[in-house]
Design a binder for these strands. Sequence first.
DNA 1: TTGTACGCGTTATCAT
DNA 2: ATGATAACGCGTACAA
Lengths: 357, 357
Amino acid sequence: MRIDDEVSGAGGRGAVAGNRGGTGRTVTSKDVARVAGVSQSTVSYVMSGKRPISARTRRIVEDAIAQLTYHPNAGARALASQRTQIVAVVMPFDVGLGAAGLMAFIEEITLAARARDHDVLIVTAEEGVDGLRRVAGRALCDAVVVMEVSTDDPRAAIARDLRVPTLFIGFPDDAAGLHCIDFDFEDGARLLVGELAGAARVSALVWGPDTVDRGLNYVPRFRAAAQEAAAAAGVQLDWVPLERDRVEEQVRTVLDGGGQALLVTSFLSRVVHAVQEAGLRPGTDLDLVALATDADATGFTVPLTAVSTHPRDVSRQAMSWLFDLLEQGAGPAGVRRVPAFVTRRSSVRASPTPRVP
Amino acid sequence: MRIDDEVSGAGGRGAVAGNRGGTGRTVTSKDVARVAGVSQSTVSYVMSGKRPISARTRRIVEDAIAQLTYHPNAGARALASQRTQIVAVVMPFDVGLGAAGLMAFIEEITLAARARDHDVLIVTAEEGVDGLRRVAGRALCDAVVVMEVSTDDPRAAIARDLRVPTLFIGFPDDAAGLHCIDFDFEDGARLLVGELAGAARVSALVWGPDTVDRGLNYVPRFRAAAQEAAAAAGVQLDWVPLERDRVEEQVRTVLDGGGQALLVTSFLSRVVHAVQEAGLRPGTDLDLVALATDADATGFTVPLTAVSTHPRDVSRQAMSWLFDLLEQGAGPAGVRRVPAFVTRRSSVRASPTPRVP
DNA sequence: TTGTACGCGTTATCAT
DNA sequence: ATGATAACGCGTACAA
């Protein structure tokens, strides 16, 4: 029933178990207190630093903690403190496409969370609104990040009533009262069109029905901005949604139609290959710019001028905001955009006309 | 201080909050009990079903639960029951390469977990052994899944002393006392070599230093089995570790050397393209088999005969085993292999010699 | 600077 | 079939 009052073996060694639950009782702060010869609350205060502790006491307690390899019990802590130290992340619906970018996202989120002693809980998009209600209702987490928000996302509505701060990656139509952040697709569109502003006509090879049907908010956002920028620059913009099974065919059609300036947001590698198959070389025979990660943009024989979506930047900023909310209490709601940048590589021939301010 | 004893508004409606923590106290089982006019413990038993409840009482309680949109508090539940209903998953080190397969893995794991009312917590590989100690020590989870195990994985050693069942995806050198599961790379190797058994010489274009240096256990496993199978079939096996920056060059060298039978495990798309660039067509001019997901194997103009790693199968089996451990107490340790299958497509010319039993 | 004591919301063991 | 009530392990107001 009791743990040795004295030092028992070398700290942390001595466990003999075999992969079982229940090897020699779990160590509690009370055990630490006993070994250290202080009260349980002192142990607690040593760990939290929420009260001044004499250097001597602190040392004794910390030694005891090390000796017993004490770890605070997450459940008990959550119950007492009303803090789980957990951030829930709601996944996108259709992974598989952007798996690489998504993993970067998750990595970054986990990193940011761990940096502040938080853990990350995965919630599938399939759980929908119930998922949100569940993790919030059960007090499984202190905050939620929702990825891949659609224009009419039902999760937006209920987020307003959640007991935990919720951060959306992407902008639903009605973002009032919500905290939303996303890559600045509008600015990205403007920049890309700007790179091709020398052309009379630009073909935008973009997200097809697959994406559009999911109501992903950035498609219309990107489109509107692109159209506007094209109009302002006096270039004609052809909007060509790429269909999974017809990409090569569509590219050929555009090329046959005399397409000299391509703006690509989807199926990049297939588009580039199709262009090359047609005997054309970006940067030599035509201009091609893309919305793509740096890795993707540089993965071809011709490095592409591109606006990168920098998934890591978005997640970093998202987490930074989230922890602000967590620490300072939910600040004012609003929409935040992560700036876009072009990297000029060699897939555009003419140096573009200077950007209009 | 108290919640309405009577029905208050339409169940679940009426919250007015704005994204804040603290909107109208959290609902507890005590509240449910009061509204239902029963004792708190009855509410608990209604939820757990661990004691017979009269139909009448059950209805009343369930109504109250619905009305108040009650959710049990995870922390309190974990504290009292010693069960967190959470499975921790330790990520691979270097994502980015197999991001797609990895996401499939995670999806499947999450699905399986949710099917049994568990959640999934992400742990980065970078946390190493401390990560394991932390999630187990803090009682953050009931079980752990460790992905991408290396031959001399330090996490294997400490897993034996963990208070929670731990499942390894992959086989460390010393698997004694551990629960390990993985795709049957040995059998996969045998099958692939078997498909090429007609050839006098087979070039194995395989994992390069990137992978080998990480001590991934399946590389030597695959190699040994492939060598053995080749020897038995009387074919010479050239082992060619692909280097990230020299893949195309290496493929050309092999082809120039008269390579007529290729066994590919890495950089598949680059290898296939290099072959095609050389004017050769798999299934017509040479034989090519691969270790690849079905999606990858069918992503080329010539569908490839391949052994699929079926990440989803592995994770499903892993989770099934894990929950067995969780429910029936840690069963006997051991190593489990998920069977390999070839899918014959059109990248091999001759129908292969029948497989030796 | 430190100790005492209560409460967090459940589960589960006694009773009845 | 149901109701009290004692843990569960920690945080923190209140005392000293």
